Every structure is written in structure tokens, then in C-alpha cells.
Computed example of a mutant assay.
Amino acid sequence: MSDNIFISWSKSKSREFAFEVKNLLETLNPHLNIFMSEDNISAGEKVQEKIIQKISECDKVLLCFTRDNKKSPWLLYEAGYACGQNKMVIPLLFDEDPNWHSWIDNPMNIAREININSISFEESFINCFNLCDSVYTRELLSNFIKRIDEIREKYRKVDAQCEDFVDLLISNNTFRIESPIYRNKTAYFLTGFETFELWKAIIQSFMYTGKYLWIYGRKNMKLFGGNFKELFDYLEEKSLNNQMFGIDFRCLFLNPNSDEVKHAHKQQDIFLPELKATIKRAKYQIGDNQLLQKCFRMYSNRREEIIIRLDNCIIYAKPHFDENGYPQLMTDTKFEI
């Protein structure tokens, strides 16, 4: 086991994770020399000089990566300096993300990570630090994971089922805000509902790892405007042999023959032709695939909300009605996840 270890962190959640790593390693081997800036720099010392010195003296650098600090300049600086010094650099991933390499550029594209969330975490940690694979070691690692879960829950801004999708939207400048407003594990976006960019993010997420896509809309015009042919090719492929292979796709249209059409939009001369045209395009897109045909339904009752289910993530918007009972335009309005 290496004698000198440098633990790199950035931002509050990563700091708490780093302390847990430090405590774990010191418990497993009291002879280790572990440096962590929060714990090992005295008042009056020059921080940057001390950090550079300790990286130069260490054998391994552990980087505590989270969603919050994935692009932290200081964290990447320490990683880059360590690589330049030919140190062993080990990213510790505390937040689940199969595409974690896309968070950042080099030098982390050449470093093998330890994923705290992986089923192979204990084995990877034991091998990395040449630990004795004993009941005692496994118990310490198990308790470590429990504390990590508690810290993760403490800092969670949005429900775990929605984190990936919220991160995807935040990374898109189209929504014109650096970050949504968070309250009660819900993310509130001030703009962007029913925009092409939102639909693009929904389709991208669904086709990557999705199982459920339920669309409780009105006319769904953007979905069938010709920009998402890959979605229907994907559904066609999944429906081969009369099976959807774990995919649950549903889409609601307002029935153009219902009385609710008269109240669904203030511009009747525009809304009804667009609704009929979109339904026609949907029928053409689905063709004679009977399994996909069953995924579409029409409704006739008044709607007080528009809902999209993306796996266990709910995208929700509530129409605002004018004095005559007509809903205001929904495109580019606020929504919540």
C-alpha cells in the first residue's frame, strides 16, 4: 500500500465524501500519510504552494468527483499537475453516470476510475490499495457505503429518478437559466416547455436508457413534425416479433370530434386543422404496425395539466386560462420535474 496519499475535492458534498475516504483509509491502515487540504493546511500557510508540494510528495492522488464539481477548475488543475508528475491518479465517482468521461477533458480520459456505486466497488477498492480481503475490511467498506448514501441524500436537490434528465436540461443553454429553482426535491424551470429542445432531450434520454415514455398532450405537433423519425424507427425495431422488449410507449391526442376542442385553444381556426394534420401524420408514421397503433389513444375530457412521463421522471405543466376559459399558449412556458 502506498504511504502517501493526496485526496482532492471541490465543493461541500465532495468535501464530506473526501473526509469519509480519509477516515476509511486511516482506519484500514493507520500508518498511511494522507493529505487533505481542509484538514492539513495550517493558518498562514500558502495554500497553492502546500498543495503542489504535497502532490509532488505523494504516491497516489484520489479525486472525489460529483455532479456538482465535475468541471471544477481547481480539481482538474490538481489532476493535471499530478499526471504531469507521473503520479497514480484515481478518480472516485460518487454520483452514477455511465458517461462520466464526457464530464471533463484530459487528463481523466486516461485514468481508471473507482465507481462507488458499482457492484464491484469493494473488490476494486481492495485491489487498488492492496488491502486484506477480510470480513473486517468488507464490513468497513459496507459501512462506508451507507455513510456515502446518507451524504448523497442530504445534498440531493431533486429526486434521484430525475437527476440525469435535470442535468441534461441544465447543460442546454436554450433554457436560458444557469440552474432551475429547487424545492421539495422538485426542479422548476422558468422557460422551455413544449420547445423542440425539450422534446429533443426527452427523446435522447428515452432512446438511451428509457423504458417508459407516456405523453399526455393535446395535439403533440412537435413530436410528429418530422424531426424525430429516429424515435419511431426505434419503436418499430423494438416492436418486431410483436413485442416491445420492455418498452412502454403511450401517447394521447385530443379527440378532434369532442366538445373540448372548442375550449382547447383560443384560435380555433388554427388549432383544429393542426390537430387533425398531426393525427394524420401520426397514422402515417406508425403505418400498419398494429402493436404501435395500440400505443395511441384519444381523450375528450377537459385537461387541467400536461404530463410527460420519462421512466420515473414526471415533466409537468399546468395551463393558465384566460377570462373566457381558453388556455394560454404553452410553448416556452414554465414547467417542473
Rank of each mutant, 00 (worst) to 15 (best):
M1G: 08
F6E: 04
S8T: 08
K11V: 15
K13R: 11
R15L: 15
F17M: 07
F17G: 01
N23A: 13
L24A: 05
L24V: 07
H31M: 11
I34N: 01
F35E: 01
M36F: 13
S37C: 06
D39F: 10
I51L: 12
S56D: 15
K60Y: 12
C64F: 01
C64Q: 01
D68F: 14
D68T: 12
S72C: 11
E78M: 08
E78Q: 05
M88P: 04
V89E: 00
I90H: 00
L92F: 09
L93Y: 02
D95R: 04
N99L: 15
H101A: 12
W103D: 09
N109Q: 14
I110E: 11
I110Y: 13
I119A: 14
I119W: 08
E123H: 15
F129A: 02
F129N: 01
S134R: 08
T137M: 09
N143G: 07
I145T: 13
I148G: 01
E153V: 03
V158S: 06
D159W: 02
E163L: 14
D164F: 13
E178P: 10
S179W: 04
S179V: 14
P180D: 03
Y182I: 13
K185W: 09
T191E: 13
F193M: 06
T195R: 00
L198H: 03
W199L: 05
K200Q: 13
K200G: 01
S205V: 10
F206M: 01
M207H: 03
Y212A: 11
Y212S: 12
L213K: 00
W214I: 13
I215Q: 01
I215L: 11
I215D: 01
I215E: 00
Y216K: 10
R218M: 10
R218C: 08
K219T: 09
K219V: 07
K219A: 12
N220E: 06
L223E: 05
G226Y: 05
F228W: 07
F228A: 02
L231M: 09
F232V: 04
D233P: 01
N241H: 11
F245P: 00
L252D: 12
N257E: 15
E260Q: 15
H263V: 07
H265T: 02
H265Y: 10
D269T: 07
A277F: 12
R281N: 10
R281V: 12
A282S: 10
Q285S: 04
I286K: 00
I286L: 14
D288R: 13
N289H: 07
Q290A: 14
L291I: 15
L292W: 03
Q293C: 13
K294I: 08
N301P: 06
N301R: 08
R302C: 07
R302H: 12
R303V: 10
E304D: 15
E305A: 14
I307N: 08
L310E: 03
D311V: 09
I314A: 14
K318V: 10
K318M: 08
P327A: 03
L329N: 15
L329I: 09
D332C: 11
T333D: 04
I337P: 04
